[in-house]
């Protein structure tokens, strides 16, 4: 949330593939799948969000992913769980949430950079340490 990654994540999911009817988009299908599994963990979570999964506690969300990755609900759910966690992390730690697609420039420092200590993009760094044992060429045997 703080990384402002919701829209980039939604766009990425929706352009990654087609959703079968009755879903209009892949993100809609994924929301349905998450909320469906949520029903087995906590049928009536309360909270400020429209989606059931979003209102779960952290431990309950972990339980949802454990259920999905157990394979009992089919291999597609295993793939989905892995992809969701991976792409959410990718988006959160990247600059996606603050990049202006029209100008190609950042509108703020990405949260992912702040929490990882990343210094930001650069055309070069000062980290050349020379050649191991001074060897600049590998030998032909």
């Amino acid at each position: 949330m703080e990384a402002n990654g919701q829209l980039p994540l939604e766009f990425g999911l929706n352009t990654a593939g087609l959703a079968p009817p009755p879903f209009d988009s892949l993100s809609e299908l994924i929301t349905f799948a998450l909320d469906n599994v949520t029903g087995f963990i906590n049928p009536a979570p309360t909270g400020p969000f429209a989606g059931r999964f979003a209102n779960l506690t952290w431990n309950e969300k972990v339980a949802v992913f454990s259920a999905m990755e157990s394979g009992l609900a089919g291999p597609e759910m295993v793939t989905l769980a892995n992809a969701l966690l991976l792409y959410t992390g990718l988006v959160s730690y990247s600059d996606a949430g603050v990049l202006n697609p029209l100008t190609g420039e950042l509108i703020a420092e990405p949260v992912g950079w702040q929490i990882s200590g990343y210094e930001g993009v650069s055309v070069g760094r000062n980290d050349y340490q020379g050649y191991y044992r001074g060897q600049r060429r590998a030998h032909e045997h």
Partner: peptide, 23 residues
């Protein structure tokens, strides 16, 4: 960079969430 680093180094798994479940 941090996005690809987090994804590649820590987030893809066939086991599960570290310390909680391993399938």
């Amino acid at each position: 960079m941090p996005g690809a680093y987090a994804a590649n180094a820590f987030l893809g798994s066939e086991a599960g969430i570290a310390g909680i479940y391993d399938h």
